[in-house]
Design a protein around this nucleic acid. Structure first.
Lengths: 179, 179
DNA sequence: CGGTTGATGAGACCAAGTCCCATCACTTGA
DNA sequence: TCAAGTGATGGGACTTGGTCTCATCAACCG
């Protein structure tokens, strides 16, 4: 992962071949594809862990709480992975992703995956389908906004995410109807 | 596009090569890639047209109207392409997309693209950043839900989409805060 | 009628991704 | 102590998506 990020930074994603990455890491192409299902994936590790945290975060909020409270639980639970040291490469990673369509695509899929995870977890605790959809969508929006702010400003991710979600909630509540 | 959809239905997406599609269409691989930027894209034509309709739909709603009213304008404007005859293959297309990760990925990117289009158009008319984000996200959710319902039940897409957006709006407004 | 333009065919070429088999280190059990 | 098993790696053949270049061919135009 380090080798890949370095090379992408030096030469750009498209001008870097998997063989090059493997070589710099002291491995071969074969081994690369044993660890990552494709070239893109090297930039998106750790998704399973996040999915697990989301599920646990939602399961960990009291049954009586509303959908958004559960979403907040999910975001807060994710904070354990978003620590300064583990994410020192966050900005570089983000820059590479935004430089390339294939990567943006993968990112969109990952985010949609988080959204579905949240939605399904909400529905499993009895939240009506529509509310689960809406809460999940707003949760993802808050996650994106919170993540961006956290990358710039730092601080405790849980706090940042909580604030982002509250912000989004207020904005959503105050939107007026169409007619 | 017809040849591709047929072959995907018969053999599955992954077991179909671009050469096969081209052959059935009476063309060559070269020509295929002149029309579609990659294998996936054959299932996602007409996005530019939709983006144009979104922008026009938003521009066409009165300045005084709120963000969600503008989003409604966008959805309604899209209805001109969602007609029964042009979308006779909608269900088959959807089934293929959902059968494959690469395609889901592309779909997620397209949806995110629509979201960004909505968001940017809203911000251009002075909607604050946060509200534009939220309205765009809810709009995409309504689009997805409305599209799914329209595929099953048919009817006028504009009506279906309008109802879906109103539904989403009400759900969003009624979500309670986290604490 | 000669020249231009636009779409296509044809094929070389590169890189992503799959598959299979050999190798090597490490563990385990008799 | 050794043989067998296990897991990670190397290596290379092979397929296919995707790019590029050049040739061909038809329509159109002055």
């Amino acid at each position: 992962m380090r080798a890949a990020l370095d090379l992408f930074g030096e030469q750009g994603y498209e001008n870097t071949s998997v063989a090059q990455i493997a070589e710099r890491a002291g491995l071969t192409k074969s081994t690369y594809f044993r660890h990552f299902k494709d070239k893109r994936e090297v930039l998106f590790g750790g998704q399973d862990e996040l999915v697990g945290l989301i599920v646990a975060g939602i399961a960990g909020t009291p049954e009586s709480a509303g959908a958004l409270a559960a979403v907040e639980g999910a975001l807060v639970a994710m904070a354990v992975t978003f620590t300064q040291d583990r994410w020192a490469n966050g900005p570089r990673r983000l820059a590479v992703i935004e430089s390339n369509d294939e990567l943006r695509e993968r990112d969109a899929l990952k985010m949609a995956g988080f959204g579905r995870t949240i939605r399904d977890a909400l529905r499993r605790r009895g939240v009506p389908e529509l509310d689960a959809d809406v809460a999940a969508e707003l949760g993802i929006l808050a996650l994106r906004r919170g993540y961006a702010r956290w990358l710039e400003a730092g601080g405790d991710f849980a706090d940042v995410a909580r604030r982002a979600l509250e912000e989004v909630r207020i904005a959503a509540a105050s939107l007026e109807g169409a007619e």
